[in-house]
Computed example of a mutant assay.
Amino acid sequence: MKRSAERVRHLRTPVVVAAAVLAAVPMAGTSTALAGAGGTAGRPGRVAAASPVGRWALKVSFEGQTYDSTVQFTAGGTAFIVGGGAGSWTRTGTGRFTFRIAEPVWSARGDYLGRVSVDQSARLTGDTFTSSGVSRQYDANDVLARTVQAHDTGTRS
Rank of each mutant, 00 (worst) to 15 (best):
T13P: 11
P14V: 11
P14L: 03
V15C: 06
V16Q: 15
V16L: 15
V17A: 07
A19G: 03
A20W: 04
V21L: 08
L22F: 12
L22V: 10
A24W: 01
A24S: 09
V25K: 14
P26S: 05
M27Y: 10
A28C: 14
G29R: 01
S31N: 02
T32M: 00
T32S: 03
T32Y: 01
T32R: 04
A33H: 02
A33F: 03
A33E: 04
A33T: 02
L34E: 06
A37D: 11
A37H: 08
G38K: 04
G39T: 01
G42F: 03
G42A: 07
P44M: 09
P44S: 10
G45L: 14
R46M: 12
V47Q: 08
A50S: 13
A50Q: 11
S51R: 05
P52Q: 02
V53A: 14
V53Y: 06
V53M: 07
G54R: 00
R55G: 03
R55T: 10
W56F: 03
W56M: 01
W56N: 01
A57E: 06
A57L: 07
A57K: 04
K59S: 15
S61M: 08
F62H: 13
E63P: 00
E63D: 12
G64S: 06
Q65D: 10
Q65T: 12
T66E: 15
T66M: 13
T66W: 14
D68S: 15
D68N: 15
T70W: 10
V71Y: 00
V71P: 00
V71N: 00
V71E: 04
Q72W: 05
F73H: 12
F73L: 15
F73N: 10
F73G: 09
A75W: 03
G77C: 14
T78L: 14
T78Y: 13
A79Q: 02
A79D: 04
F80C: 13
I81A: 13
V82C: 09
V82S: 12
G83D: 13
G84Q: 12
A86G: 02
A86H: 03
A86N: 05
W89Q: 00
W89K: 00
W89T: 00
T90Q: 13
T90Y: 10
R91I: 12
T94V: 11
T94N: 10
R96W: 11
R96K: 15
F99E: 15
F99I: 12
I101W: 05
I101N: 12
A102W: 01
A102T: 05
E103P: 02
